[in-house]
Design a protein around this nucleic acid. Structure first.
Lengths: 205, 205
DNA sequence: AATTTTACCTAACAAATGTTTGTTTAAATA
DNA sequence: TATTTAAACAAACATTTGTTAGGTAAAATT
């Protein structure tokens, strides 16, 4: 069966972008088809020409988002060989992905598979594709014997994904700086040597 | 104005528990008043005798949840003086709080203030009360000069809150073990000494 | 230019959802 | 025991929400 030829007045891209923006800011359930249609400059019934349901629309956005994230990873890691440097870059790239202006990437973190009844398995599979990148990076690290690699990965992912809830573009650090700082907190000792008691100077305000 | 005397057939506690359980598993928007009423063993209209709205119900649950979390913190930290030990215990206590059976504590992490239009400011204020505990703990740590304390706190909170999405009671680690492992990953160097290249033995599967 | 086909509009449907209002029941008090 | 009042029931309301089906406009093809 041949797909219809797409015409010049086709607004599928505008639709995807509008939906992704709203899903990533308002959430999936909280965003109505009327919201999406309005933002895309069409009427609600028209959405069903392009997608069979609201959940199908989400799935399409997830596919786009994951693909874009993996591209960002590959590009950033292209000629980097040192495992620690690769981890640092992956952290920064991921933080960038979920905090920057491309809504489809933001949706991956904002709308979780377990919060959606239909397509949950498919969405989880898509997420696994980029989480697998982290898994491989962690596996390549020369780590001390006490380190549980899967716990390290989960800890990193949690910290990184959490940035979406607190990062402000007007804050004092860029996304890359945050990524670098996170990597540094993991790699370099954070405690000052024992027996040296100093009043903390950089208090958390 | 005197509050009505509560009678023996008052089911407010059952209502709070039912709502908290559903909010923490299904989410706020996804849970209907009919769901809640059914789980509490009453009819939907009856809920409005106790709470003016669905959002008011959420606020009451948040208040309970935050209070309980702070109690857990205080109890756990009672006679612990070493800052690193306090951090380790706080991490474990918090992981326990958001993963254990008390639904009101789970809601704090599952339903975020920015996802709810009404009471968002009040909910944020309540969250701040327990986050302040972490802030104080981080402030008391003897840290190296390169460490940004607020970034460390945000990283820890992200990692800890993320456990709610992957922890399984049937997994290979208890909540306390996870908490201890997280603290260890932060405190002890994770890299093996340079110039020592060994094939990783504990791969992340 | 006529016809086909894509991509939308339009109005309505069916169900869902938070809430309101009047009524009834039963716990507590006088 | 009679009365009051807390706490529920019951039915309905008003609105919202995802979706359907018939129709129209316009882009593309013949």
């Amino acid at each position: 069966m041949k797909a219809p030829t797409r015409r010049s007045n086709n607004r599928n891209d505008a639709l995807l972008d509008a939906a992704a923006t709203l899903f990533s800011t308002q959430g999936f359930r909280e965003t109505t088809m009327r919201d999406i249609a309005k933002a895309a400059g069409m009427l609600p019934g028209s959405i069903y020409y392009h997608y069979g349901s609201k959940d199908d629309l989400l799935l399409a956005i997830y596919e786009t988002g994951v693909e874009r994230i993996i591209e960002e990873f590959s590009k950033a890691l292209l000629s980097v060989n040192d495992p620690w440097e690769r981890l640092r870059i992956a952290i920064s790239a991921h933080i960038g992905a979920i905090n920057q202006q491309t809504p489809a990437m933001r949706v991956i973190n904002r709308v979780l598979p377990e919060h959606v009844s239909k397509h949950a398995v498919a969405l989880s599979r898509l997420r696994d594709r980029y989480e697998k990148c982290f898994r491989e990076l962690i596996n390549d690290l020369p780590l001390a014997p006490h380190v549980d690699r899967s716990l390290l990965r989960l800890m990193v992912l949690g910290a990184v994904n959490h940035t979406q809830f607190w990062f402000k573009p007007t804050g004092k650090r860029t996304l890359n700086e945050i990524g670098a700082a996170f990597a540094q907190l993991l790699i370099e000792p954070i405690a000052i040597p024992l027996k040296s008691i100093i009043t903390p100077e950089t208090r958390d305000t």
